[in-house]
C-alpha cells in the first residue's frame, strides 16, 4: 500500500529519535570523553617513523583490520535502528554494503582534532603522515578534509546519531528488493532530524548535512579505487591476510 498512513505522530518521532541516539551511543567504538581526554596524546617521532617504515602491504593490512573493526560497530548500530531488522536480509546487506564505510567516515569526525589535524588511531592521535606508507596520500588528505568539514558543523552526538542513520537508510542504493519500505523508514528519519534541528534551533544544518552525502560517496569510491590498485600489486596479501569481512564488503 504505497500510501500507508504511517502514524508519524510527534510521540512516535520522539521515541524514534531517542532509540537512534541510544543505538549510536551503545555502538560507538570510542566514548567522546575518552577521545577528549586523549586528544593531545600524539605519536612520538620514533613511533611515527615506525609506521612510516612499514611496507605498503603491512600498512594496508593494518588499516584494513582497523577499518573492519570500525565497520563491525556500524553493523551493530544498524541492527538497533528501529525497523532495520524488519527489512529483508538482502536489503539489510545492501544498505550496509556501501553505507557501513560511509558511517565509519562520519563517525571518524568524532575522533578528529581540528586544532592539529590529527585522528585517533591505535590509541593515539596522528596526522596524515602516519599513513604515508599506504601510498594513498590523496585519499588520506580527502578523508582528513572531510573530517574537518564535519567537525566544522559541530554536531551534537544526537545529531550525529540521526545523520548516521540517514546515511545508512538510503532508498537509492541499487538492488534493493523493497525500496518502498526503505523509503518509508527514511522518511521518518528525515522527520526526526528536522524535528531535532528545529528543537536545537539549527535548521540550517539540514541542508549542510545532506551536502555531505555526495562527498561521502566519492570518498568510498576512492577507497575502492585504491584497494583495486593495491590488489593488483599484492593479490595474495588481500586474499590470504585481509579480514574476510573487509573483502566481502570492498572487493
Amino acid at each position: 500500500d504505497p500510501y500507508c498512513p504511517y502514524p508519524t505522530s510527534l510521540l512516535h518521532i520522539e521515541e524514534l529519535c531517542d532509540s537512534i541516539v541510544r543505538s549510536h551511543r551503545d555502538t560507538s567504538q570510542f566514548r567522546l570523553e575518552e577521545l577528549q581526554a586523549l586528544r593531545w596524546k600524539l605519536f612520538s617521532r620514533e613511533e611515527l617513523h615506525a609506521y612510516q617504515s612499514k611496507s605498503v602491504d603491512e600498512m594496508w593490512q593494518h588499516c584494513a583490520v582497523r577499518l573492519t573493526e570500525a565497520v563491525q560497530y556500524v553493523v551493530e548500530f544498524a541492527k538497533r535502528i528501529p525497523g532495520f531488522r524488519g527489512l529483508g536480509q538482502n536489503d539489510q546487506i545492501t544498505l550496509l554494503k556501501t553505507g557501513s564505510m560511509e558511517v565509519v567516515l562520519v563517525r571518524m569526525s568524532r575522533c578528529f582534532n581540528t586544532e592539529n589535524s590529527t585522528v585517533f588511531f591505535d590509541g593515539k592521535f596522528g596526522s596524515t603522515e602516519l599513513f604515508k606508507s599506504l601510498g594513498c596520500g590523496d585519499l588520506m588528505v580527502a578523508v582528513f578534509d572531510f573530517a574537518h568539514s564535519v567537525c566544522a558543523l559541530r554536531l551534537t552526538e544526537q545529531q550525529m546519531a540521526l545523520f548516521s542513520s540517514l546515511v545508512l537508510i538510503n532508498p537509492d542504493r541499487p538492488c534493493l528488493e523493497d525500496r518502498g519500505r526503505v523509503h518509508r523508514m527514511r522518511r521518518d528519519l528525515e522527520v526526526c532530524l528536522s524535528h531535532m534541528l528545529r528543537r536545537d534551533n539549527q535548521e540550517s544544518l539540514q541542508h549542510k548535512l545532506y551536502q555531505k552525502v555526495s562527498v561521502l560517496q566519492s570518498l568510498c569510491s576512492l577507497h575502492v579505487e585504491k584497494l583495486h590498485w593495491f590488489s593488483q600489486r599484492y593479490p595474495l596479501i588481500v586474499h590470504s591476510v585481509f579480514p574476510p569481512l573487509y573483502k566481502e564488503l570492498f572487493t
Binding site: 563491525q72 541492527k79 536480509q89 550496509l96 554494503k97 569481512l245 566481502e248 564488503l249
Partner: peptide
C-alpha cells in the same frame, strides 16, 4: 546473502 556470509552472520547475531 550467498556472497556476504560473514555480514549475514553478523546480522543474525542477537543485539546483546
Amino acid at each position: 546473502k550467498e556472497k556476504h556470509k560473514i555480514l549475514h552472520r553478523l546480522l543474525q547475531n542477537s543485539t546483546s
